[in-house]
Design a binder for these strands. Sequence first.
DNA 1: AAAATTGATATCTTTTTGAGTATCAAAACA
DNA 2: TGTTTTGATACTCAAAAAGATATCAATTTT
Lengths: 191, 191
Amino acid sequence: MNPLTAHIATALKEARELKSLTQRGLSARSGVPQAKISRIEREGADMQITTLISLARALDLEVELVPRKALPALETIVRSTATTWSDPGKRFRDLRQALQNVTTPDIPSTTLEELQSHIRMLANFPPTAEVMAEVKSFTTWLSKAKSPDLATFDRHAREIKRLRNELAHARLPDSPPRPAYSLDDEDDDDA
Amino acid sequence: MNPLTAHIATALKEARELKSLTQRGLSARSGVPQAKISRIEREGADMQITTLISLARALDLEVELVPRKALPALETIVRSTATTWSDPGKRFRDLRQALQNVTTPDIPSTTLEELQSHIRMLANFPPTAEVMAEVKSFTTWLSKAKSPDLATFDRHAREIKRLRNELAHARLPDSPPRPAYSLDDEDDDDA
DNA sequence: AAAATTGATATCTTTTTGAGTATCAAAACA
DNA sequence: TGTTTTGATACTCAAAAAGATATCAATTTT
């Protein structure tokens, strides 16, 4: 990954994923070929600024030149402006509660135990957009479905496992495991 | 001027001028040819992001992708972080005072009168980095030099005139003529 | 007045991106 | 299970930027 552009490449990828867009989806919006988006995201491929601007605009971002001095403040601003989750701990508790009430005999108890272990682990990491979206989606589905079908349940269970593995293998940022979050919710994800 | 890149082109030029760098000076620091810098600044020429990053770094700037939502806050941050001048009105008064005390007979009174008129005009515009730097530099020189030489005096007079003309011909931003400034000084310019 | 600097342009070759397609393995989905 | 979607990668040709110089008019400096 090109060290000069890594920062931007990562920001683009994160912004795309936060918006639940596929590379092809972003391609359609921005006019930039999917192949190029792939190269940019993983290699930090160089590109023209007009291309960067197209991608950024499609993601509701702007390319700005910010004085070094202002960077710490900018970080704070962006964090506070970003879509965050109010009380992620409660969201995790809600999910585990919902799981406790699942009484479908089809679900193997080993699977259920494993799933609960994964959720506990996820709850001990700083919440990401991706994780919280799944937690919310899973909880909603559980509390809504009268008779949860095994297929959907499995899909959620696998997603939770994937997220756990992703976090487990990722390099941890040097921030404490569970910061206090307090900003409001925007509810822009799926059911 | 390319409308897509105009924003960035302008920011680069302003940052360079704020640092009193010539295009060649910036070229030397950034490794980007002077010819290209010229094209970028006036035509908003497209460039690769690695080029933009080189230029930005040489100007103590960083290329950032900022959420649209966070832009107003960013603007505030940048303004408050920028080098500003405490009480620009006082700086203008100091300069005019220093001029009153100039008793060198060599200076034609017409020149002096014209100069004072220009200063009055500049004082009625929102102060720019360039203007305040010159006001400070001129004042310092006047109060230091026992017998001000005409050549240097003329250089300052011409610079003041140039700045006045620049402002007079520039499109005015839609801000009020003399906002209240209150932030502290950084004193990073010459004697 | 002469010398040096500045920003704007021009020219030329090399390197890189852009755009359009196509393919493929892995994962998601039904 | 078979089908679709997703991201990664390959190849082409046309377009554009990079890089290296050089020139020039207008200032600026000495």
